[in-house]
Design a protein around this nucleic acid. Structure first.
Lengths: 340, 340
DNA sequence: CTGAAAGCGCTTACAG
DNA sequence: CTGAAAGCGCTTACAG
């Protein structure tokens, strides 16, 4: 059953042909007699021969590998992206390397260098929170490899990108609160730099403006890492300040959850006293009490798109066309639950 | 900054040495003059040269790659394992391929064939639920690659294994229920085949026996996939049967959660009327209401061990020693929460 | 201690 | 339409 030890010369010998001819058939060259082609194809199929990819690479420089760099482990959204990418990779003849920067700029740099050395054809990356210099990312393109950015992108880098329309999504989250009757809406925002965090903040402001609710910057609190603890302490600050509020749009479900926990401790009713919307549709958000209204990010779909856009880009490159560098926007959905 | 285009011959030329000598230094051969060695090392460091791995492979057959095959996407435990493996891989000069069988025997087979073709040095796999024939797994060893099984293992295959002591863990989960005063303890068990599912069932029985509580097979319900829906419907069956019960040990946190949801709907109080223990310590189990008592499976640690045991095995093989084929047992912990 | 040469398994420009 | 030959970037047995 195993084709492990078969090589081109074995096939050629078995068929009484040259390695050249066999190789030509395998690579789809047209200058081969139809009967010869069939003979080769049949035999190759029968013995399940596949060329050694390392040897092919040495000649063609096509490694048939791509690398995915995620910023966090065990993060539902990034895992869905991984799932989507892998699904499409497994349908193709490519192989996927996966690394994790753990939000470290240094690790990110090392991973990129490592993958470049392995001659991957492309690197798909969601930029680490820490990263402020984009040399490493640019080195991918300088090495003639394809770079695809997703989720945490950098606008100034010219390359294909796959993103959620965060600004729109944040708009609809905030709009939903307004339609529920909220007028004093808090926003627990993410770090200042990442585009997604900025966009969600802007979407929040857009909605206030659209409904002529005055923006008050004291209603915005920083939750840099988007975890529960931050949400909990931001809620504490809110309560201790004595300010009035009736709604909260939090940058992530976890932040929302942390806030909800603090509110509950202080006998503040959800959604009666404060309506809460999170972001991300983490699995747990449907199991908490109350369950959390949120924005669903279709990670699997994003992952699939990432690989598709790479194939498209590669094809364009091969044909000598200019790269399109398109930005693909994946629609997200508001999921209404008990918290609002 | 980039070493992408440097090759051995460039280094050799720059230093006025032969490729042979440079290569010897890089590979740690001893028959090189100390000064020459230093000269090479310094230069190689300076220009950050690393040999092309595909070319090295062609000669040495050491690909410096390993593959991890997970049975499920977006599964916290498996993601932790992935995290642990990747952590150790990223510390080494290896690269990790990751695939997902999606519990399909067919996909599993294809992935194994694919990775064998890529000449990985080892495959780490948690066997898919569906798999009943182990030819594909054995082909890994027939191809002289190292096989490491983890979590869902097959006892009859001789290879290194990394597992949770499921039987012991299930014992302590059940024992905890008994100590809380439960005497009529239900078990929502997993599928009949997987060792982990069998072991958890046996641990449950061990505990009953140890405390002289008669085992009653009508208290055991099948939840093949360990998801919420199954837990929900198993709980429904229990209630509809009218049987008495005061405790439940469920094969996974999700199963426990499903059961809890049904109990809550039927005004059965947790833990007063029925104490519930899950398995796995999924993130959500601490956020549900009530939060769920569970068994923590240290996935990251398991993942780290998997890679360590591979390195050990490889070393033994290289030195011509017999493989140890040890089974590494990772201890788990009972985490008591509101549900019990 | 150093290096020339063969060869790993492929692909492709070229000749016929 | 077919095939001999060169070469991708390494490593290593061998000669000196």
């Amino acid at each position: 059953m195993s084709s492990q030890n078969l090589k081109l010369s074995d096939i050629a010998e078995a068929l009484g042909l040259s390695k050249t001819t066999v190789s030509k058939v395998l690579n789809g060259y047209s200058d081969v007699n139809a009967l010869t082609r069939k003979k080769v194809l049949d035999y190759v199929n029968k013995v399940d021969y596949k060329p050694n990819s390392q040897a092919s690479f040495l000649r063609t420089k096509e490694s048939k590998t791509v690398a995915l760099i995620l910023p966090q482990f065990n993060h539902e959204f990034f895992n869905s992206i991984f799932e989507g990418v892998l699904k499409n990779v497994q349908k193709s003849d490519y192989t996927l390397f996966v690394g994790c920067s753990n939000e470290s700029s240094e690790t990110e740099k090392e991973l990129i260098a490592h993958y470049l050395r392995l001659n991957v054809e492309a690197i798909f990356i969601s930029i680490s929170q820490e990263t402020t210099s984009f040399e490493a990312l640019k080195s991918i393109q300088e090495n003639e490899k394809i770079l695809v950015l997703f989720d945490k992108i950098e606008k100034t880098i010219l390359c294909p990108k796959v993103v959620i329309e965060d600004r729109k999504a944040a708009f609809s989250a905030t709009e939903h609160l307004i339609k529920q009757g909220c007028r004093q809406i808090l926003h627990f925002r993410g770090a200042y730099l990442p585009q997604i965090s900025v966009d969600r903040y802007l979407g929040y402001r857009d909605a206030l403006e659209a409904y002529q609710i005055p923006f008050d910057k004291s209603q915005v609190f920083l939750c840099e890492y988007g975890n529960e603890k931050e949400g909990y302490y931001a809620a504490k600050k809110v309560i201790e300040s004595g300010m009035k509020f009736d709604g909260l749009f939090a940058i992530t479900d976890l932040t929302a959850l942390g806030a909800i926990q603090y509110f509950k401790l202080n006998k503040i009713k959800i959604p009666e006293d404060v309506a809460v919307v999170g972001f991300g549709n983490w699995k747990l958000s449907s199991f908490t009490f109350p369950s959390i209204t949120t924005i669903n990010q279709p990670g699997v779909q994003m992952g699939e798109k990432i690989f598709e856009v790479f194939l498209k880009e590669k094809k364009a490159k091969k044909e000598g066309l200019n790269p399109e560098n398109e930005t693909i926007k994946i629609p997200s959905q508001l999921i209404v639950r008990e918290s609002s």
